[in-house]
Design a protein around this nucleic acid. Structure first.
Length: 271
DNA sequence: GTCCAGGATCGGA
DNA sequence: TCCGATCATGGA
């Protein structure tokens, strides 16, 4: 981390921590007063200082543009949050807790693979499994560990090998996800531009991808903010304090969902 | 030992 | 269409 830092201006409400550690992505680790991780083939050490994010470790000429986009810093989340609150006042507490979250612009394949792994699993174990996959067949990124593997590299593994690493019954699903990308069945352009019902159906045609994982891929991998992943926590909230909410049809439903997810998972912790 | 986790699939009602 | 059983694994 010897390269000079790039400073990216951000809205003062932005929370780098909640964005990187809140369950969208499983590759960022706390480091000193910031976070270390890899997106695509780029490693970086990110820190937030008030209205800026400092980027170190990426000497690429377009590092500024790349990380601005990855962190979605050009989108006005203050406006999204206010419209969500206007639509659903019960969101007040959740927005106070998770309102600094941005939706990352992750690689579609990484989101597909990560959330196939995530099914019926807890976050710490998902992180561990994703890390194993990267170490196994991801390319080394100087000073930051291994990149998320290419789909072709995963497609060349075997179900037995993955199962032996602890992937359990998901091993076959991970292989299938990789093959769907290699074969072109995972059509990013279609998923990005089709009506969301069609995009969901296309994703659920991949074995191991159900309704929840499909929406995670759409939200986190294709940046479709109208997607609305329902995991066990969100289902509880929808049957409890958010019963009858209109948020699911909100154009930025996925953002509101992320506030709720952060809120219900952390409200019993001091911070 | 039991329960749970950013669930999906399958067979049977 | 809906419901329950089942699927590995490890931490609480």
């Amino acid at each position: 981390m010897t390269s000079s830092a790039i400073l990216l201006p951000c809205q003062s409400s932005f929370s780098l921590k909640e964005t990187l550690i809140g369950g969208q992505c499983f590759r960022w680790k706390p480091h000193l007063d910031g976070f270390c991780g890899i997106s695509g083939s780029r490693g970086a050490y990110l820190r937030q200082k008030d209205d800026c994010v400092a980027v170190e470790g990426d000497a690429s000429p377009d590092a500024d543009r790349y990380w601005r986009h990855y962190l979605d810093l050009d989108v006005d989340y203050d406006s999204i949050r206010e419209s969500a609150l206007a639509l659903e006042p019960r969101l007040r507490e959740a927005a106070a807790r998770g309102g600094g979250i941005h939706i990352l612009n992750q690689q579609p394949w990484e989101a597909l693979c990560s959330f196939v792994i995530s099914q019926n699993n807890n976050i710490s174990r998902i992180r561990s499994l994703v890390e194993k996959l990267c170490s196994l067949c991801g390319e080394a990124v100087d000073g930051f560990g291994c990149a998320f593997p290419e789909p072709a590299a995963v497609a060349e593994l075997s179900e037995e090998r993955l199962a032996a690493l602890g992937f359990g019954y998901r091993a076959g699903y991970v292989m299938e996800a990789a093959r769907s990308v290699v074969s072109g069945r995972f059509d990013v352009d279609f998923l990005k531009n089709s009506p969301i019902a069609e995009a969901r159906a296309a994703l659920q045609a991949i074995r191991g991808v159900g309704p929840k994982v499909a929406d995670c891929v759409l939200l986190y991998g294709l940046h479709r903010l109208d997607a609305f992943p329902r995991d066990v926590w969100i289902k509880r909230a929808l049957e409890g304090e958010f019963r009858g909410t209109a948020l699911e049809d909100f154009p930025f439903a996925g953002v509101a969902q992320q506030y709720i997810f952060e809120y219900i998972r952390t409200k019993r912790q001091p911070e």
